[in-house]
Nucleic acid binder design. Structure first.
Length: 409
RNA sequence: GCGUCGGUGGCGGAGUGGUCAAUCGCAAUUGACUGUAAAUCAAUCGCCUUCGGGCUACGCAGGUUCGAAUCCUGCCCGGCGCA
């Protein structure tokens, strides 16, 4: 770890892998655990950076593939990096494009989530991980991934080296090694194959990053894979934890990627985190349902990012401590109370459910903003409260109380 | 008054003798969404159902036909034209 990047553990959860700490980056500090807001195309959809700041967001994550395609990493570099480009003052991250290997590859055109639910057992197993179908927009080979742009069909290629270059241009404080996010439908055999390839790509990412950024201004996180399998998850965590270039460069932190079973996400995360070095931060990639966040923190994750709060908000689902509500339901048309009594967010302080329901039914653009403000506030604040609970030795009570309330429905 | 065109499910609007409870769009109802292909997508949307099916329906009333939303007659209503 360099002087640019630092992680300090402030307090550990007794008997568990969880901890509260502080990450220092060139653009500011992050109190962890923390929820990272997703701003894929250098914008958190429907929200301004000012809104994000005022509701307590500490970090924004943008996407390498999307910004590479549009407006192009060169342009973002000229703008001074994506943070400056979008007007965000504070720490940032970029995802490597590895998730698009999944979303435009194995998952393209399928109804597959990276989180498999209990009812999905009879999902078909896919020998090639689901990537073989020729209608997919992403194809994997040993060297990298060929994408067809989802915007206009243009062909593009990503390799570990090019991902590092694009991420360097985008200029985030924390970046990820190029990896392959696998489908939960993939067989153990394919998960193993993909994991090994991800490890080779991880080494290449380390080497490429070392050349591009000798001062180590950007912290590079390796991404653990292995799907739902204990042996692979542990193997992956150990391999990345020990990975070192000839010049001695190692990962500054770790992402936990790939697919999970909804039911034992906490267990899978624990397999990984018990195999990773304690002193480096861990980011649980793409996970952010309220209950999942508790499991992630308890089992040793420091950072989370997820599109769910904003996407779900735009589609009319709003978080409450008693579980999410669907604001377009007929029941809320004349409900003049806030989304949640006592919620301190801008939306709840100023608007009623009936008004939000009206905005959604009328397809008014403000609906997206107000709903996103509430959901992002909810999840950012929830993780913040989890942190406080750890510091005050009240984590387990807080967790139990929250889950009890959230699961009422 | 005469002529003419038209009256279809909450709305718009297809259908012009059988495979029509009726294409499609909207509205409505419900659900999904976890490193954003996403202000998206899915299901339901006459009544009843043991989910096999049953019943009532295309302005109203008759008629032709094995069979009618579709053809004929009358009536009612609306648009347009002429008086």
């Amino acid at each position: 770890m360099s002087e640019n990047f630092n992680f300090k553990i402030e307090k550990k959860l007794p008997g568990k892998l969880g901890r509260a700490g502080k990450i220092t980056t060139p653009n500011g500090e992050i109190n962890t655990p923390s929820f990272v807001v997703v701003g894929t195309k250098a914008t958190v959809k429907a929200m301004t950076p000012e809104m994000l700041k005022s509701l307590g967001a500490q970090v924004v994550l943008a996407n390498t593939y999307h910004l590479y395609l549009q407006p192009g990493n060169e342009l973002v570099k000229k703008a001074g990096g994506f943070a400056k480009f979008m007007g965000w003052q504070g720490p940032t991250m970029t995802d490597s494009g590895g998730f698009q290997v999944f979303s435009l590859g194995a998952a393209f055109g399928e109804h597959v989530s990276k989180v498999a639910k209990a009812g999905d057992e009879n999902r078909k197993k896919v020998e090639d991980g689901g990537t073989g179908n020729k209608n997919k927009l992403a194809k994997i080979d040993e060297d990298g991934v060929t994408f067809r742009s989802h915007i206009n069909g243009d062909q593009h290629r990503f390799t570990p080296e090019s991902s590092m270059q694009v991420q360097w241009d985008l200029g985030a404080d924390m970046i990820f090694a190029f990896d392959e996010c696998t489908s939960p439908q993939a067989t153990h055999e394919y998960q193993k194959e993909a994991m090994d390839r991800t490890h080779r790509w991880a080494m290449r990412s380390l080497v490429a990053h070392e050349k591009l950024d000798p001062e180590n201004i950007q912290a590079l996180f390796g991404v653990v894979q292995g799907g739902r399998h204990e042996d692979l998850r542990k193997e992956s965590a150990k391999a990345l934890a020990e990975m070192k270039t000839e010049n001695g460069s190692m990962f500054d932190g770790f992402g936990i990627g790939g697919s999970f079973d909804k039911d034992d996400m906490g267990t899978a995360v624990a397999w990984v985190n018990e195999s990773l070095p304690e002193e480096k931060p861990r980011h649980l990639l793409g996970i952010g349902d309220p209950i999942d966040v508790f499991l992630g923190v308890e089992n040793g994750c420091d950072l989370f990012d997820c599109v769910a709060p904003t996407r779900v908000a735009r589609n009319g689902s709003l978080y409450t401590k008693n579980g999410p509500i669907h604001i377009t339901n007929a029941a809320y048309r004349a409900d003049f109370s806030p989304i949640e009594e006592g919620c301190q967010c801008y939306t709840c302080q100023n608007y009623t459910k009936a008004y939000l329901a009206h905005l959604f039914h009328a397809k008014e653009i403000l609906a997206n903003t107000l709903a996103s403000v509430h959901n992002v506030y909810f999840i950012v604040n929830l993780v913040h409260k989890i942190r406080e609970a750890i510091l005050e030795d009240k984590f387990f009570e807080f967790k139990e109380e929250f889950i009890k309330g959230y699961s009422i429905k």
